[in-house]
Amino acid sequence: MKDSWQYKTFKVFNTIILLLIVVVTLFPFFNILAQSFSSEAYINSGQVTLWPKGFNVETYKVIMSDNMFWINYKNTVIYTVVGTVISLILSTMIAYPLAKKRLKGRRFLTMFFVFTMFFNGGLIPNYVLVTSLGFGNSIWAIVIPNAISVFNMLIMRTFFENIPDELEEAAIMDGSNTFGILFRIVLPLSKPILATMMLFYAVTHWNSWFPAFIYFTDKELFPVSIYLRNMIKGAESGLGTGASSADNLVQISANIKSVTMILTVLPILVLYPYIQKYFVSGVMLGSVKG
């Protein structure tokens, strides 16, 4: 099989384009990483690109000795764990019954869930509901209202549909009821999809900031994303005030911001090489039926 010269030329350009995409994708991250280990003076004069200049770990020490940072970090961990557990349980409770083709009203129930993907109450009615339930300044404001992703639920449903009925029928013969089948047969067989869903939900909860932003006033309850957000937006409001001292302030915080960003994404970065293939396989599983 010989390729035409046009196709060979294309392949060369294709490789170059893809490499450029990789560079552009990774550059901001490595730039922030380099900044986080650099001293302000070098960042200030725009000399830091991919390698730290004026090596400095002081800022890491400063941030890591900030009590509030750790309180907020711990909050993020708690919200992520509790939120992921709730999301997983609720999604399974929907996806499993809806995967049963014989279930009466299955179509209607599916539409009932899917409709919420296309139409939702909107920001303010949701806010009114959540606050009037007394969820303000509590973990429930974060982990309950957005517990279910219908998209994730549909991926799960597709997976459950593909579990052979014979396995369940055998269990019914042995006298198992629905819950027995679910816990002893279906869930153990569904480890790959459960792992994927767990990761999907965990990343969403880890990265969430907006609910905490509108429902929380108590600093002690903030997730680390709000800690970072306030730092970024606070520094920004000092931007362009004209005074050179203000400029200096912004540049000092460039280093601090970089450190906080790196610490915030650290768990995801550490786990990324191991988990990214689960994400991909999860999307693939769901795409079988579209």
Binding site: I32, W206, N207, S225, L228, M261, T264, V265, I268
Partner: peptide, 9 residues
Amino acid sequence: FFSIVVVAG
């Protein structure tokens, strides 16, 4: 996989 807050930063 980056939080939108980190992305904005």
